[in-house]
Amino acid sequence: MQDLRLIGVHEDGEHLLLAGDGEERFRLPIDDQLRDGLRHHPRRPLPAEDGGSTLRPRDVQALIRGGASAEEAAERAGWPVEKVHRYEGPILAEREHIAGLARRVSVRGRTPGGAASVQTVEARVSARLTDRGVP
């Protein structure tokens, strides 16, 4: 089996770029299966010589930005959850801001009568969920 090394994230943000032993390059889709695998098999940091964590606050924020819960980030960092809560605020605010921008994006579509319509993503999603009986 050939070992691959991570080069980075593709510009589309949807793939990891990997390299093989030779000149071969690979793209790996960043899908739910990959995310779940990373969450369920977290890498354990090596303890620092003083017994503390080797992760910095920015590393913990990166974990949260990547979808880890405060509890998961605390476990990986070897920190109490209360300490993680001090650093997750800006990341959660950033996430809410981006979600708000996404909700306000206008999308075009067709009404059931076939007329063109423009509505926000939030309105479209709400209408579709309501149609399916989802609160």
Rank of each mutant, 00 (worst) to 15 (best):
H41R: 12
G133R: 05
S117K: 12
H97P: 01
W79E: 00
E75T: 06
A74R: 02
T120S: 14
T111C: 03
G133I: 02
G114R: 04
R39W: 05
I64M: 04
G100P: 03
G67K: 05
T130H: 11
A116S: 15
Y87H: 10
R39G: 06
L101P: 04
G8T: 07
L28K: 08
R108H: 13
I64Y: 02
D131Y: 05
I30H: 07
I91S: 02
E72A: 03
L101E: 11
T120P: 01
G109W: 07
E75K: 03
L63V: 05
E72N: 03
V60T: 01
V118H: 10
R5N: 09
Q61H: 06
A48F: 07
G52W: 03
R104M: 09
A68S: 08
L101T: 04
L92N: 12
W79V: 02
R132E: 14
V121F: 01
R103V: 02
A68P: 01
E122T: 02
G114D: 00
S126C: 08
L46Y: 09
I30Y: 05
G114I: 01
E94I: 01
P45F: 14
W79D: 00
V125T: 13
S69M: 01
S69V: 02
E24Y: 10
L129K: 12
G13L: 05
G67R: 08
R65W: 08
L6R: 11
D59W: 03
L17S: 06
H85S: 07
G100Y: 04
V105D: 04
V60D: 04
L55F: 08
D21G: 15
R110V: 12
L28R: 11
Q33F: 15
V60S: 03
L55S: 09
A127E: 11
E72Q: 13
D31Y: 10
D31C: 09
R65I: 01
E122F: 10
S106A: 15
A70L: 04
V81M: 01
A48W: 09
G37R: 11
E11D: 13
G114P: 06
D50G: 00
G51F: 04
R110T: 15
T111W: 02
R76G: 04
D32R: 13
L17R: 15
E49M: 08
V121Q: 00
L129M: 15
D36I: 13
I64S: 01
T130F: 04
P90S: 04
A123M: 09
R43H: 12
A70W: 00
G37I: 08
E96A: 15
E11N: 12
P112L: 09
E82V: 02
E75Q: 11
G8P: 06
G37H: 14
H41I: 05
R43F: 13
F26Q: 06
H97N: 11
R104L: 08
G52R: 10
P29C: 07
R5M: 10
E94R: 08
P80M: 07
G37D: 13
I91A: 02
L55H: 09
R103S: 11
R128V: 14
R76D: 00
L101W: 07
E11T: 15
H85D: 11
L28I: 06
V118K: 09
P80A: 14
R108P: 12
G67D: 06
I30N: 00
A93M: 15
S53Y: 04
S117N: 12
L4V: 10
L63T: 01
E82P: 00
E71P: 02
G66K: 03
L38S: 06
P42K: 08
R35S: 07
